[in-house]
Design a protein around this nucleic acid. Structure first.
Lengths: 144, 144
DNA sequence: CCTCAAGTACGAAAGTTTTCGTTGACATTA
DNA sequence: TAATGTCAACGAAAACTTTCGTACTTGAGG
C-alpha cells in the first residue's frame, strides 16, 4: 500500500540557509527594486512593482519579503515601524550566481557557449560588441 | 472569512502550451540527456541520470517525461512498446530561450552585462578568451 | 482615552514541481 | 500456459512558490 514514510527530502530551510540560494522569479523582481533604489520599505517596493506590473497585493509583496528575510536574501532593519529591507548580496554577485547556475544546468559549464548564445539571443549592437572586446582585453591582462 | 473564489490565476496548461515554456530543473536534466544521446527511451534516460545522480526512481523520470510531452517540450514516438522520446527544440534554441529569460529577469536586458558576469563567474582560460574573440569577429562581419 | 491609518504577522489556499507506489498491459521464456 | 520481467499510466503526497484575507499592533490626532 502507498505510504512512503516521512521522506524528509530535499534541502530543508536550515541547510538551505547559507548555500547560495537561487532567488525565485517573484524574489528576483523584488531584488531588482532593491538594487535599483537601495534600501526600501515594503511600501516602496510595492509601489515600484505596481508601476510596471498592475495587480499584485501589498501583503503579497510583504510576505515574499518576509520569506526572503528568512532565506537571508535580504537584510531587514526593524528599528523603524516600517521595516527597511536591503539586498544582502550585490547585484553582480547574484548575477554571477544565476549565471553559474545556468552554466551548469544548461551549458555543461562552458562559458564560451553561453557567451555565444547570449550574443545571438538578441542582436548585439556594434557598440556593445566593442565594449565586450575591451572587456576581453582587460580580462586577458588581468588573468592569464 | 478567507475564501478567495477560484482565482484561475497564472498561466493554465492550455495557454502555456506553445509559448516558450521554461523547462524546470528536472526537465532540463532530462533534456540534457536527450540532446547528448539523441532519441531515448525512459530507461535510457533514467540510466544516464543515475550515473551522475544516485537516487531518483524510474517512475519519477517517466512521469516527468510524460509531463514534458504534454508541455510539448519533447516529442514521443509510441510505435514501440518502449516509447522513444526526443527533444522538440535544439539545445541551442533552448539555451537562447533560457538566456533571454535570465537577461530580462536579472540583467535588465543587457547582454553586455551578462557576458561580463559570465566571464567573471568562472575563470575563463586564454583559449576560451580567444575563441570568444574570434566569435566576436564573425559577429561583426555578419551583422553590423 | 478613542479612533483611524499604516504597518507587520499569521495562516491558509491555490498553483507548480518533484517524487514514487501501484496497477494493469504486454512480452518473453521456461 | 504460467511465471517473470518490462513498461506506461495513474494518482497522490510532499516540497516549493505565489497569493492575499484577516487579525493584531502601534503611533498620531482628536
Amino acid at each position: 500500500m502507498p505510504k512512503r514514510d516521512a521522506p524528509a527530502r530535499k534541502r530543508d530551510a536550515a541547510v538551505r540557509k547559507r548555500d547560495a540560494l537561487r532567488p525565485t522569479d517573484a524574489e528576483l523582481e523584488i531584488l531588482n527594486v532593491l538594487w535599483q533604489r537601495g534600501a526600501c520599505t515594503v511600501r516602496d517596493v510595492h509601489q515600484a512593482i505596481s508601476r510596471t506590473k498592475p495587480a499584485v497585493g501589498y501583503t503579497t509583496v510583504l510576505k515574499t519579503m518576509q520569506i526572503m528575510s528568512e532565506k537571508d536574501l535580504v537584510r531587514r532593519d526593524e528599528s523603524q515601524r516600517a521595516h527597511v529591507y536591503e539586498a544582502r548580496l550585490a547585484r553582480e554577485q547574484t548575477q554571477r550566481q544565476l549565471i553559474g547556475d545556468l552554466l551548469e544546468r544548461a551549458f555543461d559549464g562552458s562559458a564560451t557557449k553561453l557567451v555565444m548564445q547570449a550574443l545571438s539571443a538578441q542582436k548585439t549592437s556594434a557598440e556593445e560588441l566593442s565594449t565586450i572586446r575591451e572587456m576581453l582585453d582587460e580580462f586577458e591582462r588581468g588573468e592569464s
